[in-house]
Design a protein around this nucleic acid. Structure first.
Length: 813
RNA sequence: GCCGGAGUGGCGGAACUGGUAGACGCACGGGACUUAAAAUCCCGGGAACAUAAUCGUUCGUGUCGGUUCGAUUCCGACCUCCGGCACCA
């Protein structure tokens, strides 16, 4: 009999489908487990071996949980709206609706071929009206709660995708999707008020079982800082300039102020003599891209406005400058500048020859600074506050100014509100109506969904309006309030909104009256284990947390955090043909490995096992085709062994075999639970080598139960092969309805133990002694060893260290 | 610059809370089977020295120090690679 993997795998997939093996039941007395893969977008390129990794990982986990007695919810669906899908469609000149359907079909085939246990009856698609109806509903809920607002602001604009983007979608000044440099564009846009939740989003991080780097990334992104808002009065003028500082203890060192070029008071403050250069500078700043503005090696630029402010602590007059290193979107858009104790201010002061005054003495006593000193120290040149520590000074300066109503304690966040309008076709229309009588009117819930019309010219316009604006039948509408002619909002909702609630939809994917069945949400959520790449560390994971909190506040769900445990699988890398370096697999880098050929040659089970065997799942790994050979050999040997051996009936194992099996049960179970899937494969291979050895040495003494136990252990990794051999042994029911093997520690005990004998920490001999031996006996045996004797010859024994069952170390000199 | 992660044979990697470094696999070498090859099976591989083989000795987990009877594991300094963030006052 040959190991005909193709036929075996096809056969079992068919049977599993016919018998509804992977259907998840809501009504069950079993404990429940919700394991979720991150929402994939239907890409035309399909899945490569890098994508496989995450899906195999979660599938192995789920199959193991099922055998452990859990009712497992393991659904899948498609993040089908949005830029990726639409950009691909435009490139191939296919309508996004059709392109998306084609891609879904292909990826669906691949996921099925992987032998995954998804419950396909729960498949969802974020671009279907039955889904996006509820994305629109979500928008209305946020609007009702004052968390969705329209606002004109200079937003991130991608000239290539021709749409606005959220801050989170701009990576180092470039578009997250296409890499084009981002510019600013003033547009009237819809935002979600995620900043209202900044503090909760930060605090709740403590309770999450997430990789620490993701927690750190989120905390940094939220960027909470404690400080004070201090008011500087403008000289000879009624205007006030509030600034935010985290270092009120350095106020006496504030020798000038800087406003963002976009600051509303720039026009008012600028003197006639300076107006020309200020106007020119403002124009220049507006014209450069975000990337250039942020670039690190850029020299500081700026101009003097001609105006002066008064430093509230010492009534000193300080010049007011403008510079693009001050951002309008953080704090108040204005800063006090303390060049002696801030690197950026130092650089600026040096360049424009502004006064630098040291007000903090470092612990080393240096009072002649050659660069900004940003640490803590003792206050100096600070009037009555001299001699106070930075910390004490912070409090006292604030208290003193607060009495004069010139300051208050203040917490600031880097997090900005979430821009969700997209000037693109392929998304859920924002369910809002503009009426000349009533203003902004939400579409009544009963009118949802606002259907996305099927149009021929869906390409982005670049005018700042979506292609929908050119469709009169879409735009024209009656005001739901007064019945007059009104206009629809024509922007669409960012796909990140679609994916920030999808995990709720899986519990009741066909529900028509509500977005999700609240009772079912109660029994299944929050998600117990979320598996996906680290690339979503900020974007998707932050948005989903926010949306869940809002739904919790609104009483739709009873938990704040959607994902209890998160596992990030490492990327599969390969040398890129273009750069020659190890890089993440992607079509553009030309380093893709297509799984289809490998599946044909070695089978799905081999590829599944190899995806795990390649390395620790949380780390990046380099792909190497040749390694799969070894995994394939193992599976074929198992197949041949089971097919060719005549096993003894009866539920009994020989002692030696039982020890191998139980050692492996323990190891495999522990390793799956710790996600060490690579060593799961090693131990399964090792165990099989031992079993086969035993069978060669003692032919005809192998019990069926032993193989069955082994097959159970293999089954999450190689489901098809395990199922085939399971049935070959005469079992009728599926192996996945079996229980996970129980480990029994009595069965791994041996009669003897190995004691390593060291002299001065160096290995000298290995002793095999009965397990019940005490230290005295071990010492005596060691003393009889020639190797040990020669090592301690002529030396005095100073100390003996004995670790029971492990080691005996003799210290002698 | 700041914050993470990593550095172990020719290669991927293993070693749970300090206790036999190199499990498992790839590639390689030798052998068996074969007319031959492929496939399969068996055996062997960290390095150096030594030896006719064996026995053996020394070195060895990025570098240099430290703690310890004992360090891939803990501490300190540094080097390299990868990832994230980056004018957030």
């Amino acid at each position: 009999m040959h190991y005909e993997h193709i036929e075996i795998e096809k056969k079992w997939r068919r049977i599993w489908e016919e018998t509804d093996m992977h259907r998840t039941n809501d009504d069950t007395p079993k404990p429940r487990h919700y394991c979720l893969d991150m929402f994939p977008y239907p890409s035309g390129e399909g899945l490569h071996v890098g994508h496989w990794r995450g899906y195999v990982l979660s599938d192995v986990w789920c199959r193991h949980m099922k055998m452990k007695g859990y009712e497992v919810l393991h659904p899948i669906g498609w993040d089908a709206f949005g830029l990726p899908a639409e950009n691909a469609a435009i490139k191939k000149k296919v309508h996004p609706a059709e392109g998306t359907m084609m891609n879904i079909k292909n990826m669906n085939r691949q996921l099925v071929e992987m032998g995954t246990m998804y419950d396909w009856s729960r498949e969802i698609n974020s671009s279907s009206p039955s889904y996006y109806k509820w994305t629109q509903w979500l928008f209305l809920k946020l609007y009702e709660r004052g968390l969705a607002y329209k606002h004109e602001a200079p937003i991130n604009w991608c000239p290539s995708c021709r749409t606005g983007l959220a801050d989170e979608e701009v990576i180092q000044g470039k578009c997250e999707r296409c890499g084009t440099e981002i510019t600013k564009k003033n547009l009237n846009q819809w935002f979600f008020k995620i900043t209202d939740y900044a503090d909760r989003l930060l605090r709740n991080l403590e309770d999450l079982e997430w990789p620490s780097r993701v927690l750190t990334m989120q905390a940094n992104w939220i960027g909470k800082s404690y400080g004070a808002e201090v008011i500087f009065k403008v000289k000879e003028c009624d205007e006030e300039l509030p600034i935010f500082t985290t270092r009120p203890d350095t106020l006496f060192g504030a020798t000038y102020m800087v406003l963002a070029p976009e600051h509303p008071l720039v026009k008012t403050l600028t003197t006639d003599e300076c107006r020309e250069q200020v106007d020119e500078y403002v124009r220049k700043v507006q014209s450069i891209t975000e990337l250039d503005r942020l670039s690190e090696d850029k020299e500081k630029t700026g101009v003097f406005t001609g105006a002066y402010a008064v430093n509230p602590v010492n009534n000193e007059e300080v010049p007011i400058w403008i510079s693009d290193y001050v951002l309008m979107s953080y704090g108040t858009g204005a800063i006090m500048s303390v060049p002696a104790h801030d690197e950026r201010d130092w650089e600026f002061a040096k360049k424009f020859d502004l006064l630098i005054r040291q007000v903090i003495l470092p612990p080393d006593g240096n009072n002649n600074l050659e660069s900004a000193y940003t640490g803590e120290g003792t206050m100096m040149n600070s009037g009555d506050f001299d001699g106070l520590s930075s910390r004490g000074g912070f409090e006292q300066v604030v208290d003193w100014l607060a009495e004069k109503n010139l300051t208050r304690r203040q917490v600031n966040y880097k997090l900005r509100d979430w821009l969700i309008s997209r000037q693109r076709y392929w998304g859920a229309p924002i369910p809002m109506i503009y009426c000349s009588n009533c203003g902004i009117v939400p579409v009544p819930e009963s009118d949802l969904p606002v259907l996305l019309p099927y149009i021929e010219n869906y390409e982005p316009t670049g005018t700042g309006e979506s292609p929908l604006a050119a469709i009169p039948e879409f735009v024209k509408v009656k005001c739901p309030n007064c019945g007059c002619d009104a206009k629809r909002e024509t922007d669409t909702i960012s796909q990140w909104v679609c994916s920030s609630w999808y995990f709720l939809r899986y519990v009741s994917p066909h529900e028509d009256a509500v977005p999700f069945d609240e009772e079912k949400v109660k029994i299944w959520l929050p998600v117990d284990l979320y598996v996906g790449g680290v690339e979503h560390a900020i974007l998707h994971l932050l948005y989903s947390r926010f949306i869940t909190m809002v739904l919790c506040d609104a009483g739709y769900v009873d938990f704040q955090e959607p994902f209890v445990r998160l596992f990030n699988q490492g990327m599969i890398c390969r040398r890129s043909e273009t750069s020659g370096r190890l890089e993440k697999m992607s079509k553009s880098k030309g380093n893709i490995v297509n799984p289809d050929g490998l599946v044909e040659r070695y089978g799905t089970d081999s590829l599944r096992a190899y995806e795990l065997f390649i390395g620790p799942p949380e780390q990046d790994s380099e792909w190497d085709d040749s390694g799969i050979e070894g995994v394939y050999r193992w599976l074929r040997r198992v197949f041949n062994f089971v097919m060719d051996t005549k096993f003894l009936e009866g539920r009994e194992m020989s002692r030696e075999v039982r020890r191998y099996i139980h050692t492996t049960i323990q190891k495999v179970t522990e390793d799956i639970e710790r996600f060490h899937l690579n060593t799961v494969i090693s131990s399964l291979m090792e165990c099989f080598n031992n079993l086969q050895d035993f069978n060669r040495k003692h032919p005809g003494r192998f019990y069926k139960e032993s193989v069955e136990e082994y097959l159970r252990l293999m089954s999450p990794v190689t489901p098809h092969l395990a199922e085939e051999l399971w049935h070959h042994l005469g079992n009728i029911d599926s192996i996945f309805n079996e229980k996970w093997p129980e480990f029994n520690s009595d069965f791994v005990k041996e009669d003897t133990m190995l004691i390593v004998v060291q002299v001065n920490g160096k290995l000298r001999d290995r002793l095999t002694v009965p397990v019940e031996s005490n230290q005295k006996f071990v010492e005596k045996t060691a003393n009889e060893s020639e190797k040990v004797m020669s090592a301690i010859k002529g030396k005095t024994i100073r100390k003996i260290i004995y670790i029971p069952g492990k080691i005996l170390n003799i210290v002698a000199n």
